[in-house]
Design a protein around this nucleic acid. Structure first.
Lengths: 339, 339
DNA sequence: AATTTTAATGCAATCGTTTGCAAAAAGTGT
DNA sequence: ACACTTTTTGCAAACGATTGCATTAAAATT
């Protein structure tokens, strides 16, 4: 193993000098820098991170905390894409990422505490958000750097949030549906407690209202399991069949269109469908789905940059970041053509 | 920050004793252990990993190397599930995971070298396999612990592989199709160079042969992009329409069924479809797809356990591990019913 | 009670960096 | 040449654990 001392000896300088060259310290003459860099190169020197971490009291690692079971995350490409965005952004800043996932609050909390105590991470990105979350509370109380991807229901001022403007996104999508001529639009949600749900519902309702369709504005709740979905759909289509279904997220949407297929209800001839969160599930669906792309990778990237800045500068002022969205219109909402 | 010295002082013992209590060293009396454990608890002591890593020359971290672009990985739930399997298994053994992904060989190789040189990881899990891969070669030459999920084309004896029996899986799936009464079965593959492709093709051909259907055995190659798929399907259905399509993997399958839908070819009435690698893409497809579940999480778990054993015991004999598979039959291959 | 054996603990060096401060070297102005 | 800056480098003490070996205390044997 080649250490900083070996390099120092070979170059005829002290370890301190080598160390300073490594971090491009201004006090070192450019001659020396050049010379030492060459020697480092030749000897194949790479700093030992544990040694560095020990003295700098930094781990140069950020923890990505996911509150989810495997099957949920696997299901949701959103997660993977955020993950990649985080990894990539962190790497370019010299940070590594370590992920913890758990279903229940307790083990997640324990894991987080452990990561902090053992000095394994310098900051966190939380990929979930919940009211009164113990982790959020704990981190805040310790003044430990973290950012949340998503948003609290009550936007508790303390935490930094990186999120889309879901109200706006839902509005735009609703407008698109209305423009296409749909009026009886039903929004289907599985979980109403998250901020993201409330925002999207709000956007939907606002858009309906401002188009004078308040009376037709309808939101139904429905669990993710097959039978709930079936019950919901049967109920819906038995009464007054809606002209369009706007679903809360891509996974739920996938299940719904699968069920519609079973029920021999055609998209978009019998009903149009649209949803949030672009992924293979929407892109390669039959038919391809009109969707709001929420740029998960960008969310991850922004969150990473922000948490790293927080780590490097304690009294950086907290800012929330809004990542733009865009609508991708596909066959599932287009009345005319059918390829 | 509470260090081992603080605990030692509070307990009136030396730091060495505390250290030995932490790792439950047999030479410490149970009285002392009890006492010190209590004090550690009270003071909230957690060992500083960097300090430990420095002296033990271990990082207790394994690197998960993914050769893939984001869009590929996001697309493929297989990746996410392996990732979770790895993280979970590592955590229960006191290891963390750090993931590196890259598209091109060079940056991947660089990353790997860097992780090794900076002593950031003790071992690797490679989530890809390629003939003559520089990373594999390098790791082997350094005798650095690693295992490969998947298999080389030429099963180069040096590396440890964790894989399914893809030949067998393809055989069973083909048998199922034949049992259901399909005879004109076409296997569609996108990439023939990987071992997994070759294995599945081999299994398919063997099963066809042993059922006296060699003459009907047909394999077509087709890129993943829309136009290639369309061309392939048009070509296929213009000649003698196949009765069943067996696709190499779930992602390709998803695209194919999406295209079939556009072409108004019904599944399974006009053609049956089946594929490998269970995921939401197969489960919530329209119609739900018959598929071979290859247990990606299990693959990740086995790989983790194995690489950790390798790290702990240099001259552990290398063994390959085969993870079982199972077939899930769904509507896409069932002739009779339609719900 | 003296001696030997065994069990329990402590000493002190070490891992590979970083960094405040001191020191040396080089440059400036007179 | 001298004093005085300014630039460049080195010294040495950390950082927080681990571990081989020595030591002490306790138990066993004679």
């Amino acid at each position: 193993m080649v250490t900083i001392k070996d390099v120092a000896k070979a170059a005829g300088v002290s370890p301190s000098t080598v160390s300073r060259v490594v971090k491009n310290h201004p006090g070192i003459s450019s001659d020396t820098k050049r010379k030492i860099r060459k020697i480092m190169e030749q000897m194949g020197y790479t700093p030992h991170v544990a040694a560095r971490n020990l003295v700098t009291k930094r781990s140069y690692t950020i923890g990505l905390v996911v509150k989810s079971a495997v099957h949920e995350a696997v299901l949701n490409p959103f997660f993977t894409e955020v993950n990649f965005g985080v990894s990539e952004a962190c790497r370019t800043k010299g940070f590594s990422t370590i992920m913890t996932a758990a279903e229940d609050d307790d083990s997640l909390f324990l894991e987080v505490k452990n990561l902090i105590n053992s000095k394994r991470v310098d900051g966190f990105i939380l990929l979930y958000s919940k009211e009164n979350d113990p982790v959020t509370k704990y981190l805040t109380s310790m003044a430990f750097p973290f950012v949340v991807i998503g948003k609290d229901v009550m936007n508790s001022g303390d935490a930094i949030h990186v999120d889309n403007d879901n109200v706006q996104a839902a509005k735009e999508m609703t407008d698109l549906l209305i423009d296409e001529g749909y009026e009886d639009i039903v929004m289907v949600v599985d979980n109403e407690v998250f901020a993201v749900s409330q925002d999207r519902i709000a956007g939907f309702e606002q858009a309906m209202a401002s188009n004078g369709l308040s009376s037709k504005c309808k939101v139904v709740q429905c669990d993710k399991d097959e039978s709930s979905i079936e019950r919901m759909l049967v109920d819906l289509f038995d009464h007054t069949p809606p002209q369009a279904l706007l679903t809360l997220d891509g996974v739920l949407n996938a299940r719904i269109i699968s069920r519609l297929y079973q029920m021999q209800i055609r998209i978009p001839e019998d009903v149009a469908t649209a949803t949030f969160s672009e992924s293979p599930l929407t892109k390669f669906a039959a038919p391809p789905q009109t969707v709001v792309d929420i740029y998960p990778k960008e969310l991850g990237k922004e969150a990473s940059n922000e948490v790293i800045m927080l780590i490097k500068d304690d009294n950086r002022l907290k800012r929330n970041i809004t990542v733009p969205t865009r609508i991708i219109e596909r066959q599932s909402t287009k009345k005319e053509e059918r390829g």
